[in-house]
């Protein structure tokens, strides 16, 4: 693990590496270096993209994208018999008109994750082949996982406004008379 850290530090500038638990390496980086860092780590054996996730730091006006890489141990001789190591890459992008570049060219399985982030946070991934809805049925003005999405107000406006059948009936009766 120390060797890997040294290798990464030797190859990339402007990155910050720290470990919080035994088997997790955190890397904070700028958004320009993410693609090269991912392809470099893929070549070193971390060929499994476990998750693409996002945090909303509304006070800083930034989104934090999180890429979690892990390793299939059979392939990597160095890690055989040892504990599985995860590498967590964090980068920040601007929150207004959020956009980032897709990583499908490096990891194909990033496609559904990026679609989900587009749906829930409204991040536009450039180069993604189909940024359509994945889970949601309705359309939302503000994507629902953003911090400024007010769920109580939305629920009151959307679901609270739907009358019961009895109310509809009595309304219609009142209209007639």
């Amino acid at each position: 693990m120390e060797k890997l850290k040294k290798n990464i530090l030797a190859n990339f500038r402007d990155i910050e590496i720290y470990t919080r638990q035994d088997n997790r390496i955190f890397i904070n980086t700028k958004k320009e270096t993410v693609l090269s860092l991912l392809s470099y780590l893929k070549n070193t054996g971390y060929d499994h993209l476990a998750l693409v996730s996002c945090n909303d730091w509304i006070d800083d006006g930034e989104f934090e994208l999180v890429y979690i890489l892990s390793v299939y141990m059979e392939k990597d001789e160095e890690y055989q018999g040892k504990e599985k190591t995860n590498i967590i890459i964090k980068t920040r992008i601007v929150r207004e008109e959020a956009k980032f570049i897709t990583v499908i060219d490096i990891f194909e399985n990033a496609e559904p994750y990026e679609r989900e982030l587009h749906e829930m946070f409204g991040i536009k991934f450039e180069g993604h082949p189909r940024l359509t809805t994945l889970f949601l049925e309705l359309e939302y003005e503000i994507p629902p996982f953003r911090k400024d999405f007010d769920t109580d107000k939305y629920v009151e406006n959307k679901y609270g406004q739907i009358p019961t059948i009895k109310e509809r009936k009595s309304n219609k009766r009142n209209e007639r008379t």
């Binding site: 949601l136 049925e137 309705l138 939302y140 629902p144 999405f149 769920t151 109580d152 939305y154 629920v155 679901y159 609270g160 739907i162 009358p163 019961t164 059948i165």
Partner: peptide
């Protein structure tokens, strides 16, 4: 009435509507 999902953005609150 929605139960524990009373403030969910994506869950129907009362089905008999």
């Amino acid at each position: 009435n929605g139960g524990m999902y009373y403030d969910s953005y994506n869950t129907i609150k009362s089905l008999d509507k």
